[in-house]
Amino acid sequence: MMSNPYLPLSMRIEKVTIENDARDLKTFDLAFVNESDRQQFQFIPGQFAFLSIAGTGEAPFGIASAPHEPLVKFTVKRVGVFTTALHEMTEGKIIGMRGPWGNSYPFELMIGKDVVIVSGGFSFTTLRATIAHLLPPKNRLNFGKITAIYGARSPGELLYKEELRAWEQNPDLDLILCVDRLNGADWPKREGLVPNVLKSVAPKAENAVALVCGPPIMIKYTHPVLAELGFSPDRVFLSLENRMKCGIGKCGHCNIGPKYVCKDGPVFSYDQLLNLPPEY
C-alpha cells in the first residue's frame, strides 16, 4: 500500500522533564523504536508532528529538538484530554508520532544575515530547535549575529532553564531573558513585556531576519516594534497554530483563507499574512 500519512511511528519516552513551577508544562524526549523510522524522519526546525496515544487520540506539537540531536523533543502544556493523558506517561512508555508536517523557518533566506528571535511563553519550542540548529560551528558560520529575546510570565515559567543558562554564556548567541512581572521573585535579569524589551534591545534590522512565535497578544504588540526598528514585512516570520486534525491539508480545520497552516505554514512571513484574512 502507498505510504499512509495517518499512521503513527512508535516512539519510546526516554526522558520526561517538568519545565515550570505550575507543573503543567512537560518536555518529552522520544527515541525511535524502529531504526528505519529514525532514518526516514528528516525535519527542519519550525516543522511539527502529531503525538498519538492509542485509544485516546492525537494532537499536533512543534518539534523542539534540532535535526542533529539524537532524541526528538516536544514540550506539551496540559490543557485537555489528550495532553492530560500524555502528562501521565512515564519514561519507557511507547507513544505514537507522525510527521514531520509543514514548512520550516526560512533558513536559506537567513544565510549570511543576522537572526533576531522573539519568543514569549511556551511557544519557545520550535525556536529552541532553531537556536540549537544554528549554534553548532558547521551551521553557525553561515549566519550573522544571533539575538534571541525570550520572555515568560515569571522566572519559573521559562522553558529549558539549564540550557538557557549555558546559552547565556555562549558568545555565539546574544540571549536576553525577561519576565513580565517579578512579584518579588529573585530575578537579576530584565523585567518587562517582550515587545518592550525588544524595543530597548533594538537589534538592527539591516540585513536581518526576525522569527517570531508567541501568544496572539505578544505578536500583536511585537509587529509595530519590529516595523519601527526597520524590519520590512517580508523579513518577519511567524509560526502560527490553528486547530488541526490531519496535518496534511485535508481535514479543513486550520485554514486561513485559502491557505492551510499545516501545509502552507506553520511559518508565514508577515507579508503573506497581511494578504490573508485575520483568522488565526
Binding site: A54, G55, E58, G252
Partner: peptide
Amino acid sequence: CFDVTDETMRGKSARYRVWD
C-alpha cells in the same frame, strides 16, 4: 472536512475519522 477521534470499547481501541 473531518475530525479524527479515538474510540475504546471492551478494551479494543480504534481511530476513526468522521465528517466535521
